[in-house]
């Protein structure tokens, strides 16, 4: 017996999809505003991408090509698991190539390759409320968004500067969308924040456990919060990717031994592979070629 045969296309029932679709349309019309939606229990745990999965399941069609990444990589176990889920319940074509995908579901990264018009980037979001760690109460944060009262956030960032000489937020770095809503970009490293600004692609955010969906349409201003005397900056790596030699990309540090040996490689595995296929080599890649 094929148990999956009992479920609808893309797992969710049509009524649930309609409810989520209505929320997505509102989210697109009000960029950066968190639309409450009636999140469903999914066959994977809360906190493991149920929001992103529900968004993807509600937008995906038979002609879509899906890519799923976690930490920038297509082969991390949770990415593998979610990709396999959609291949099974929606029978869609999947890919690891950013350029080929019409929908990219992601956790913690934005691909290095510039996204194009018509592509949709679906983020898995654990805590959608950028003000949550300053004010734990939903009733309060809702008022703050309504009144556009974001002073607390600036105070927090400024306290960082006073204490550490810099803003000590390195990921989930808050942004302001189209000059109105302060938004959590999900726990992507702040390195990726500039990619959100005026992106050609539609960006959808799903937080299943927290029952929120929000969106950034294409060509929308997404500005990282900062101060005139402490402008926003992104991480910079001292060395290129050891495999493909890429610079200006986000790198993972890989520990090679217990004597402090380490190397840096692209976090975006597809980007790295494509570069190597195109003949780019890094320090370790060269060694391989020489061997």
């Amino acid at each position: 017996m094929n148990a999956v045969a009992n479920y609808n296309f893309a797992y969710l029932d049509e009524q649930t999809k309609r409810m989520i679709r209505r929320a997505i349309l509102k989210a697109v019309a009000i960029p950066g505003y968190q639309v409450p939606f009636s999140s469903r229990e999914m066959p994977m745990p809360y906190g493991w991408g149920t929001g992103g999965v529900q968004v993807t399941a509600s937008i995906i069609g038979p002609d879509d090509v899906l890519k799923v990444i976690d930490q920038g990589a297509d082969d991390t176990t949770n990415a593998v698991s979610i990709r396999a889920f959609f291949a099974k319940v929606a029978q869609v074509q999947t890919t690891t190539h950013t350029a080929e995908a019409s929908i990219i579901q992601t956790r913690h990264r934005i691909p290095e390759r510039k996204l194009e018009a018509g592509q949709i980037l679906v983020y898995q979001v654990p805590i959608p409320e950028p003000l949550r760690f300053l004010e734990p109460r939903e009733t309060e944060t809702r008022k703050m968004h309504a009144l556009e009262e974001y002073g607390l956030m600036h105070v927090k960032l400024y306290e960082d500067i006073a204490r550490h000489g810099r803003i000590a937020t390195t990921y989930a770095y808050p942004v302001k969308v189209e000059g109105r809503y302060v938004m959590d970009p999900s726990p992507t490293p702040k390195f990726d924040n500039p990619k959100m600004h005026r992106s050609e692609a539609l960006q959808l955010f799903g937080a299943g456990r927290e029952h929120r969906i929000y969106a950034v349409p294409p060509h929308t201003d997404v500005v990282s919060l900062d101060f005139e005397d402490h402008p926003f900056t992104i991480q910079h790596f001292e060395q290129p990717c050891a495999l493909c030699g890429a610079e200006q990309v986000y790198l993972d540090e890989v520990i090679l031994d217990d004597r402090g040996g380490h190397m840096y490689v692209c976090s975006d595995t597809d980007h790295c592979e494509e570069r190597r296929e195109a003949g780019h080599v890094g320090v370790l890649g060269m060694k391989e070629a020489a061997e």
């Binding site: 745990p45 913690h108 654990p126």
Partner: peptide, 17 residues
Amino acid sequence: TGFVEHLKLPHYVDFQA
């Protein structure tokens, strides 16, 4: 349980930051 246990998923991008 989902959110507590999600901490075992890879977080190395953020940890790198």
